[in-house]
Design a protein around this nucleic acid. Structure first.
Lengths: 193, 193, 193, 193
DNA sequence: TATGAATGAGACTTCATTCAT
DNA sequence: GATGAATGAAGTCTCATTCAT
């Protein structure tokens, strides 16, 4: 499997660095190849085309979020705590890899419609886990039973996303992690039973 | 003043249509000129360059939001109602001009860092009006006095934005306007005193 | 006759200024019109096209040289003195109108082959007057009777031209007029009987 | 080193042909590429931009002159003979490559101020060799000891340049080489001790 | 597997000229 | 005669992808 070979990860990581440092539109395949210490042509032994690199970046990195949330979901804690851990997880991963934050919040959004639709496919998996948390909360009557799950999910994800984007736009000047309790409280207040 | 001449508006409107129908990266100047029924060169009598067209699209259209919210802000109604009217306004404008919705929620976000930075400058005006509503609500104790205005604004804007983007991504299949009471309720529940 | 109307001269003079200040390739018709205080379209009432302006600039200004040399030619002085007066005249006119010097020595040479051929047609009249001086000198045996007139004319004109170009390229730092006795002596030494 | 690769010379030579045949302003990169039998993009692997091609043409070709004159300068012959060889060399190179003559005497002079400034930098090396010959002649008292070297150089170069330009303008109808003894005689007569 | 030289399509912008007023 | 808004043709350069080695 190509994904397990060292050069595959090498190229993915190089792509994150190059995009973060140069911006989406200045992230040429040749720059990524150079950063990854491979020849331009080698890229095409591991990826179908440039778009494939970008989707793979998103898929590989999003897997971290998904795996963590999967674990959270299975824990024996109440909905409020699950939500807190999820927000915490989301903030922590991006707080720790600031290049990744730049890439997901700013740069990859410059991609064209088709690529963003495919990125959204990947995102949906994450959002469905969030849906699962919310549904479980409603079932267990820990959240307001008249809550519209789709709207609630849009509020939760929209708030998290906007908070992180603001942080990135402000050059990551403050500690993102510190915001999670307040964000959690605000969201829970809106959704709780 | 160039902005008052009919061709200026003609080109702006053509740009919205062309970008919505073809996507940001396929919106060539020549296509916009054709849609506006002017020669390519005429574009440059009204706009400095292509980027200037795009910023102007955003500025001109965002002015509608800002003007409306300004009026709402001055009305003698309580904070909850102001917020409802603001959400309503935001949803209505984009519900009525679906091309504009595609352009603001999807296409213009593909622009490069510099252009998005300039778009953000325009956006800030709108966000500061939202801030004013929230601050007033706190002062009048209609909102939770311990509310962090920045976080609250990020929640409100993030939720609205995410809701509209979801609607656009789902091909605007449902009536966006119908969502505003529920969105409003959810947000107010989180913020009220 | 158009050439006698004030706007004709106004445009010619504006062209010299605009070309000297902006360079040949930055001397747009609209700039010349602005400098001449006329509308763009007015230019075309006096000149067939842009090339026609440039040739006219050269023709009108070259007429000054030709007229002066014509007078010199008719004077009752010896060949050496005629040559000195001619060099003096050439240097003086350009020394006094430095914009004109920039235009003739540097900028107009950037024009395309066809324009330069037409400029050369104008120049030929001047060179034929120089030829006349040289031929007369040979006939009167004041110059070496075995002198090849064409070569001698190329030496005289080439030396004058190169001297002026050097002066322009050195930002007209020194007084061009002071060079004429030395240039004259050098040339005469090569050609005298 | 890029300059040693065959495609580099291939493109330079193609540029001379295309400029000579089409004129400076009609020498599009795509034409040069076609003449050189490479793709348009390949040009940019060897040259920074179009201007870089043109400067390189001048630099590469001027090197022939400079190298030859350097050899002449070191020979154990008198100043008069050195000057003759130099004129001979200059005439011969351009007589043998008539396209090059068109390019250096007519076409490259149409370039913009900046390009011509850079071309002049290259030219200065050649002129300083000429200066060296003249200075040596004065020191050895083979030339007039009161000779102004700058003026003399301007006369020599101006005469050579004007002679060649005349020859090119007359469609290279006669044999340029045959003119060198006469040109040399004329110049030496003016400068000799 | 890996390389990297070569390819070639594609678009923004300028500016001389026109013509309705 | 005078205006100036409108026109539209035309060229440089970038960069994702290929393929011979």
């Amino acid at each position: 499997m190509k994904r397990d070979k060292p050069k595959y990860k090498q190229i993915i990581d190089a792509a994150v660095i190059v995009i973060a440092e140069n911006g989406y539109h200045q992230a040429q395949v040749s720059k990524i190849a150079k950063e990854a210490n491979v020849a331009d042509g080698t890229i095409y032994l591991y990826f179908k085309n440039k778009e494939d690199i970008l989707i793979s970046v998103f898929r590989e990195k999003m897997a971290i979020f998904v795996d963590n949330v999967q674990i959270i979901l299975n824990q024996d804690i109440d909905t409020s705590e699950k939500l807190l851990k999820m927000i915490d997880n989301h903030f922590r991963v991006l707080n720790e890899d600031r290049n990744l934050a730049i890439v997901t919040q700013l740069e990859l959004r410059q991609s064209n419609k088709e690529l963003r639709f495919r990125i959204n496919e990947v995102l949906k998996e994450y959002l469905s886990l969030l849906d699962a948390i919310l549904k479980e909360g409603i079932d267990k009557e820990e959240l307001n039973i008249s809550l519209d799950v789709r709207l609630a999910r849009q509020m939760v994800f929209g708030t998290i996303d906007e908070t992180i984007t603001s942080w990135v736009m402000n050059d990551q000047k403050y500690d993102l992690m510190k915001l999670s309790p307040e964000v959690h409280k605000l969201l829970m207040k809106g959704m709780k039973a």
